[in-house]
Each structure stands twice: as structure tokens, then as C-alpha cells.
């Protein structure tokens, strides 16, 4: 019974939302209501997620694990930001400066580490993937794009060479679109499989 009920709710809500795109005027009020419910549920789920985060760090404190220091810093920062956010409006200069002056440098430093790691990983490409057509194509394309984007080649845009270079520089875009089309196709089928109950992640099959 529980399985049938779950499937009925899923199918009903999904068909309603899909139908809402086709018959917008007719289903707009109901669709709006269902979307609002969805947003409230997602908001509640986000709060529960924050609860998971807090529980993990509080549990680290009590277990006295090696990351106890980091968990302590996290909890102090979390509650300080929460209380400050509740008392002060988000437009408050002190609050926004306080948050941004900590958050931005930390994020920038992580991105800097990422840039170095990326450079190192690109040097290991052939070792990771071997000499396959895909890895060679990736390498050639990346090098070619780097040289072109650096602007060191004096290429006249409307000359025959310029047009060939322009064509070649559009190839990565075509590749990206191909991958996105494939992912869209896969995403469509995942959605349909859940909608038609071929796939039931919410239930044991």
C-alpha cells in the first residue's frame, strides 16, 4: 500500500507539472501552489541539512577526534554568523564586511590551490588516460586553445588563415555542445524512468 501511495503521489505531481507546461492558462493556479509546496519542502530540507552539518561537528567535539579544533572553529563561526545575521540586516556594512572579508579570501585561497592542482593534473594526463585518441585530442585541443587565447599569433581575422583558425577555435564549443546534448538526453531518460516508475530510488525494488 505504501509503495502504491508513493507512486501515486509521484506520478500525480509529475504529470501535473508536465501538464502545466502544456496547458499553462488552465493549470497555472494549481501549478503555482504545487511549486510553492515544493519550495517550502526544499527549504525545510535545507534546514535539516544544516542540522546534519551541526550534528557532525558537535559529534566531533564530543568524540574528541583529530578534527576537533576545526569543528570548534566551525561552530563558533556558524553561531556567530547566525546570531549576527538574525540581529543585523544583511545590508549592514559591518555584517557584510565581516562575512565577505573572511569568506572571499578563504575561497580565493582554495581556488589558488585548485589552479596549482589543475596544472599538475594536466601534466599527468597521458599517464592517467594513456595514449588514446580521446586523450591525444584533449591534449592537442587544450594546447591549441591556450596558444590561440594567449594572442601571441598575429592572425588577421578576415584572411583565409584567420578563417581556418576561427573555425578551429569553435571546435571546443561544438564538443561542449555535444556533451551537453548527451547529458540532456541522459537526464531526460532518468526523469522519465522515475516518472514511469521504472526507477524507484525512494523505495526498495
Amino acid at each position: 500500500m505504501r509503495k502504491i501511495l508513493a507512486f501515486a503521489i509521484l506520478a500525480g505531481a509529475s504529470l501535473l507539472i508536465l501538464g502545466g507546461y502544456a496547458f499553462q492558462e488552465l493549470l497555472a493556479p494549481v501549478l503555482g501552489m504545487v511549486m510553492d509546496w515544493g519550495l517550502v519542502l526544499l527549504g525545510a530540507a535545507f534546514l535539516i541539512g544544516i542540522g546534519y552539518l551541526l550534528r557532525m561537528h558537535i559529534s566531533n567535539l564530543f568524540k574528541a577526534e583529530k578534527s576537533v579544533g576545526m569543528s570548534g572553529i566551525f561552530l563558533v563561526a556558524f553561531f556567530f554568523t547566525l546570531i549576527a545575521g538574525l540581529i543585523l540586516p544583511t545590508e549592514n556594512a559591518f555584517y557584510s564586511n565581516l562575512v565577505l572579508n573572511i569568506q572571499l579570501p578563504v575561497e580565493a585561497s582554495l581556488l589558488a590551490v585548485l589552479a596549482v592542482t589543475l596544472f599538475y593534473a594536466s601534466l599527468r594526463l597521458v599517464r592517467t588516460q594513456g595514449w588514446t585518441p580521446l586523450s591525444v585530442g584533449f591534449l592537442v585541443s587544450a594546447l591549441f586553445s591556450l596558444v590561440l587565447e594567449s594572442g601571441i599569433l598575429p592572425i588577421v581575422p578576415n584572411s583565409p588563415i584567420g578563417q581556418v583558425v576561427s573555425l578551429l577555435s569553435r571546435l571546443p564549443l561544438a564538443g561542449a555542445r555535444g556533451i551537453l546534448l548527451g547529458m540532456a538526453l541522459g537526464g531526460l531518460l532518468v526523469g522519465l524512468r522515475v516518472l514511469l516508475s521504472f526507477e524507484r530510488p525512494y523505495d526498495e525494488e
Binding site: 589543475l118 593534473a121 594536466s122 599527468r124 594526463l125 592517467t128 588516460q129 584533449f138 555535444g178 556533451i179 548527451g182 547529458m183 538526453l185 541522459g186 537526464g187 531518460l189 532518468v190
Partner: peptide
């Protein structure tokens, strides 16, 4: 992410293979 992981991970699925 797919481009970055292709550089460093041997077992990576990209494009529609992602959903396989």
C-alpha cells in the same frame, strides 16, 4: 568538472555515459 576530472581520473564517465 568533467574536463578537469578527465585529466586526473582513469575511471571517469562523461556525457551521456554519466547516466549509465
Amino acid at each position: 568538472a568533467q574536463a578537469v576530472l578527465f585529466l586526473s581520473v582513469r575511471d571517469v564517465l562523461i556525457g551521456e555515459a554519466t547516466f549509465a
